[in-house]
């Protein structure tokens, strides 16, 4: 469960304060499917970064699965990211010199999980995402849709409780975009909380709950 209360995020640009988030409060229950929408610069990414513990709020409190994560130190937050949160980015963020297999295995390797177990889990993930025949390919040998599927496989390999996706289809053509959205929705059906930032109204409408942000505030939540 995600529980945000009175979150503020202020950036200093020169002498000017930019309120990326002002007094944002929201709760997301386990297994929810939320689309965050809104105009450019409205604070969608800022909100997602704070939920993902990549950034700290200047004010307010954040509880994740009953843990007051805003009070944890950097190392403890890293632990939580590793085990509870999976990220999917607009630009995939695959490591270019690693194969699809090794990119998916990366979180397992960083957590010190043994080679044999990695082999089993990554092979299963490759099969699940229809990438079995691409295991040895490097990112530059994959299509956009395939890259994003590798990224999603990587995001889910540690079996997180939440997936945070910042415009996951923003860099894909229409059909690959729909394919990726369907994969994410399937993961959501299996119980993972899915929070997705999108500019695409059609994609946004597929979510059971939509949050509209304007000027760093939640304008609309339904």
């Amino acid at each position: 469960m995600i529980h945000l209360q009175h979150i503020e995020r202020i950036f200093l640009v020169g002498d000017e304060e930019v309120h990326a988030l002002s007094d944002v409060s929201m709760t997301a229950s386990d297994g929810e499917y939320i689309a965050i929408m809104g105009p450019s610069g409205s604070g969608k990414s800022s909100l997602l970064n704070i939920i993902g513990l990549l950034d700290r709020p200047d004010n307010g409190s954040y509880e994740l699965d009953g843990i007051k994560v805003s009070e944890l130190d950097e190392q403890q937050q890293a632990e939580i990211r590793r085990h509870k949160i999976g990220f999917v980015f607009q630009f995939f963020h695959l490591v270019p010199r690693l194969t699809a297999f090794d990119n998916i295995a990366l979180p397992l390797m960083l957590s010190g999980i043994k080679q044999e177990e990695r082999q089993v889990r990554v092979t299963a993930a490759l099969a699940a995402f229809g990438l079995s025949n691409r295991a040895g390919h490097r990112p530059d040998q994959l299509s956009g849709g395939q890259r994003q599927r590798v990224a999603i496989a990587r995001a889910t390999i540690m079996q997180p409780s939440v997936i945070l996706a910042d415009e996951p289809t923003g860099n894909l053509d229409r059909s690959s975009g729909i394919e990726v959205a369907e994969i994410l929705e399937e993961l959501n059906r299996q119980g993972i909380t899915l929070i997705m930032v999108t500019h695409d109204p059609d994609l946004g409408r597929r979510a059971r709950r939509q949050i509209l942000m304007v000027d760093g505030r939640i304008e609309h939540d339904k």
């Binding site: 993902g52 990549l54 950097e74 190392q75 890293a78 632990e79 939580i80 990211r81 590793r82 085990h83 990220f87 630009f91 963020h93 490591v95 990366l106 979180p107 960083l110 957590s111 990587r154």
Partner: peptide
Amino acid sequence: TGEIGLLRALGVGRNQ
């Protein structure tokens, strides 16, 4: 830089 950001997102601490 992008890879460093990714590693951090995957739960790698500063020391690592």
